[in-house]
Each structure stands twice: as structure tokens, then as C-alpha cells.
Design a protein around this nucleic acid. Structure first.
Length: 280
DNA sequence: GGCCAGGCCTCGC
DNA sequence: GCGAGGCATGGC
């Protein structure tokens, strides 16, 4: 078990922010997730103290980067235009949200699935795909856990090879509908080595964007989400129906994301979370 | 039961 | 280059 003092960190808000589909709150202070083929629990101990059910090595080697713990979010928030009341409110409301650095293949598939679907529906489809062909994970935590896992077994997100083995019919049976061919093509692109995450990570934004946009079933919005949520390209500003609505309503149809060259994507996430939560 | 969902592809101009 | 139409299914 690892304990850390982490200001500007809220697993609850992150789980509810719609950027990741496999973080689950057991209650308001206990989160669990599966990533990198591992099961993790996080407990909120109060006073910005958090406990993670992993070893120090795993924390330093995996989860710290995954939760973007080395970025100064106070600085990000304080960089907001003092005249931008909407964004100031959104950021205050969303303090604790961080931009996760998720696995590339999982992010690509998840956001291909996301098009024209609600977040609960995306979660269901992702979970079905994992249990269909992901590797089984027994939720054993190497260090003392804080509460019982919600299930006896979990499934990793499938590898590109395993997903590429599925037929279109198999995919359709998971409820992904007309996106099945998109998923099949993406699985093929990654399993064949046409797309290699480590190589993509080395590319400048413009090249990475162009390559992602060339994928079948990936347009501007999904490409930007993959860049933001898997490659930590925080200058990207994905525009979906919510953001478009916000920009129309509060910014007269024009929000200049280039004002935040290092954090536009974080601002986007604050806006998205704020607008969705306060309506619901 | 109807409506809408973190869009994208294809086609016609 | 750009706008309209169509799209499988799940949740509320």
C-alpha cells in the first residue's frame, strides 16, 4: 500500500468525468479500476491523503503517470483568464479532475465506440468487450486493501491481437452496432503493427493527428480525444456536442483554445464535467 | 415507448 | 470543400 498527499486529485470526479470508462466508485471514498492489466483500489483518507493498493514500484512506475500526478494543476487553474467567468466556475467545480494517461489501444477503441452514444452505454459496451476477450484478472492487491472488490474477477482490456480475432458478428453481439467494422479495422491496424503506440507517442501533434484521422471511423473529435486521453497532448480541445453547445451558449460560438497551449484539454474537461453535472 | 446519445462515413453538390 | 442524411443499439 502506498499513501500520498495529493491536492487537486479526486478519483470520484475523475471516475465521473467521462474520460475513462473503467473507473468505478464502490462508495464516495473508495474507487477501483483496471488498467495495464492490473486491478487497483484507491481510498480517500481525507485531508487530500489517498491510499493506493499497490507497491511503491507500481505506483512510481505506472499509476503516477496514469493519474498525471506530476502536473501542477493549481498552476493550470490559476492560468485561467480572470474575465472568463464560465471557465473559472467550471474549474472551481471540477477541481480534482486530472487528465489520465490511458493505454493507447483501449482509448482508441473506447472512443470509437463512444460516437453517438451516452456514457453509461459506452461503459456497458467496453465492459462487454473486456469480458468477452480480455485476460482475466483476479483482484488481488499485493498490499492490504481497504474494502472488498466489487467482483471476484475482472478482465483486462483485450490486446489488439485478441480483439482482431473477433468476427464482425462477435463484435456486433457486444452491442457496438454499426461501429463494429471500425473496431475491427482499428484492432487490425494495431495487431498488424501498422500502428505502434510507442512510435505514435514520439510524433509531434500534427503527425499524430493526421495518422489518427486516417483511421477508419476516427474523425476530429475522436482523434483529439485519443491525443488528449492516451498521449497527454493537453493542447488538444475535443469538440463534441456538449462543448459545441457550451461554446455557443457562453462564448458566442467562439472559444479560443489556443489561449491555453499547454492545458486546453484540461479546460475542456472542466467545461464538459461542469455542464453535464449541473444539468443532471 | 419514444427520444437522444462525448460522430463519422458516404454521397451529392 | 461542405452540408445533409443515415446509422445500430442502449438508457432513461
Amino acid at each position: 500500500m502506498i499513501e500520498a498527499v495529493l491536492p487537486f486529485f479526486s478519483p470520484e470526479k475523475i471516475a465521473d468525468s467521462g474520460q475513462a470508462f473503467r473507473i468505478h466508485m464502490l462508495d464516495s471514498t473508495h474507487a477501483e479500476t483496471v488498467a495495464f492489466g492490473r486491478y487497483l483500489q484507491i481510498a480517500d483518507m481525507g485531508d487530500s491523503r489517498y491510499a493506493f493498493s499497490c507497491t511503491a514500484d507500481e505506483f512510481a512506475g505506472i499509476w503516477s503517470a496514469y493519474f498525471d500526478l506530476n502536473r501542477d494543476y493549481e498552476k493550470v487553474v490559476s492560468s485561467i483568464d480572470r474575465n472568463d467567468n464560465y471557465l473559472l466556475s467550471a474549474a472551481e467545480f471540477g477541481i480534482g479532475i486530472r487528465i489520465l494517461r490511458q493505454e493507447v489501444f483501449e482509448t482508441a477503441i473506447s472512443y470509437i465506440i463512444s460516437q453517438r452514444r451516452s456514457i453509461p452505454s459506452i461503459t456497458t459496451a467496453v465492459e462487454r468487450i473486456c469480458s468477452l476477450c480480455g485476460e482475466k484478472i483476479v483482484p488481488y492487491a499485493p498490499e492490504p486493501v481497504f474494502t472488498a472488490p466489487s467482483q471476484n474477477e475482472f478482465y483486462a482490456f483485450p490486446t489488439p491481437v485478441r480483439l482482431a480475432e473477433l468476427s464482425i458478428e462477435d463484435l456486433t453481439a457486444t452491442g457496438v452496432g454499426y461501429r463494429a467494422p471500425y473496431i475491427a479495422r482499428a484492432a487490425s491496424d494495431f495487431s498488424s503493427g501498422k500502428l505502434i503506440p510507442d512510435e505514435l507517442a514520439e510524433l509531434p501533434d500534427s503527425d499524430l493527428y493526421r495518422i489518427l484521422m486516417s483511421m477508419y471511423g476516427v474523425g476530429m473529435k475522436v482523434a483529439n480525444c485519443i491525443m488528449l486521453f492516451a498521449f497527454a497532448r493537453t493542447s488538444r480541445f475535443p469538440v463534441d456536442v456538449w462543448i459545441a453547445r457550451i461554446v455557443d451558449t457562453y462564448y458566442g460560438g467562439n472559444f479560443d483554445a489556443s489561449r491555453y497551449p499547454d492545458s486546453a484539454g484540461i479546460m475542456q474537461q472542466f467545461m464538459f464535467y461542469y455542464e453535464r453535472k449541473r444539468i443532471s
